[in-house]
Simulated scan of single mutants.
Amino acid sequence: MNSKYIGNYILRNVNGVCVAQSPILSQFNELVHYVTTRRILNNTKNELDELNMSVSNEDFPRYFDFFAKCVNISPNKCVFSHQTHSKNVKVVTREDIGEPYWNRKLKEVDGLITNDKELFLVTTYADCMPIIAYDPMKRVVGVAHSGWRGTLLEIGKELVLKMNEEFGCNPEELFVTVGPSIGPESFEVGPDVAAEFFMKFGKDVLRKIDGNEKIHVDLWKAVEITLKSVGVVHLEFSNIDTYKHTEYFYSYRREKTKKRFAVIVGIV
């Protein structure tokens, strides 16, 4: 398995599929986590050209089966959520696995939590922020899909509070990483959205870039404010701007694409 860095994350070739991983989470051997990229390595004419993890794509089972085989996980142990930019967070068990496996039984849920072993949580992205939280003491993992709407709704806080409420997780003992997502130099907004962020988080999340008249919102800073407000201290950012790194990650804002990359997390 070869590896190199992009931003703060480690890029690895796992049996021909290129994935990104968090250094802060990689220290826990019992935690499986992958951030997929669009790249498939060591390709042959019989394999896929790139890895599109959009669940709504009609070829999704083919893509996911290929990925699952490369990383040696069972697709039939995966839970997929129906994301709607809400702040809804749900504790999931094996009962939430769909039939067929990619059926999204969980409607309007943007955050998933589990302490079940060998159960994998799958969320998908194209500029929105993946927030992964792990409690190594309680062996509980959670993941949230935080776009700009979810960031205003503070879904990161909801994830941490739900882990505390359901499993007694101490926020100070959580290890949290924020994965590849649109960065502060790329997220240009109109005055209405800028005003909402200013009212919620203050002026520190607003930026002017190189004399540009447009306002940019620093979603990473907004999530940092949210997570620290509930006591998170072990916090890492990938510092990977998906808008700038479309060679690895899909960006809806730059490409207007329906394709997605995925985060897969689970405890073994």
Rank of each mutant, 00 (worst) to 15 (best):
F80E: 00
F80R: 10
F80V: 03
S81T: 13
H82D: 15
H82N: 15
Q83G: 12
T84K: 11
H85C: 11
H85A: 13
K87P: 00
K90W: 01
K90I: 10
K90S: 14
V91Y: 13
V91A: 10
V91I: 15
V91E: 10
E95S: 15
D96H: 15
D96M: 02
D96S: 10
I97D: 07
G98H: 01
E99T: 05
Y101W: 12
W102T: 09
N103R: 02
N103V: 02
R104E: 02
K105Y: 01
K105A: 09
L106G: 11
L106R: 03
L106P: 11
K107N: 14
E108D: 15
V109Y: 01
V109F: 07
G111E: 03
K117Y: 14
K117F: 14
E118Q: 10
F120H: 02
V122R: 04
V122N: 00
V122S: 02
V122W: 06
T123C: 07
T123G: 06
A126R: 01
D127V: 04
C128I: 06
C128N: 06
M129G: 00
M129R: 08
P130F: 11
P130H: 01
I131W: 14
I131C: 04
Y134Q: 03
Y134G: 08
Y134F: 05
P136Y: 01
P136M: 08
M137D: 14
K138T: 08
K138C: 13
K138W: 04
R139H: 10
V140R: 03
V141C: 06
V141K: 03
G142D: 00
G142R: 01
G142S: 05
V143A: 11
V143M: 13
V143S: 12
A144W: 12
A144Y: 14
S146K: 01
S146G: 03
W148E: 00
R149E: 14
G150H: 10
T151N: 05
T151I: 15
L152Y: 08
L152N: 05
L152H: 03
E154Q: 15
E154L: 00
E154K: 05
I155L: 13
I155R: 04
K157T: 08
K157I: 05
L159D: 05
L159H: 07
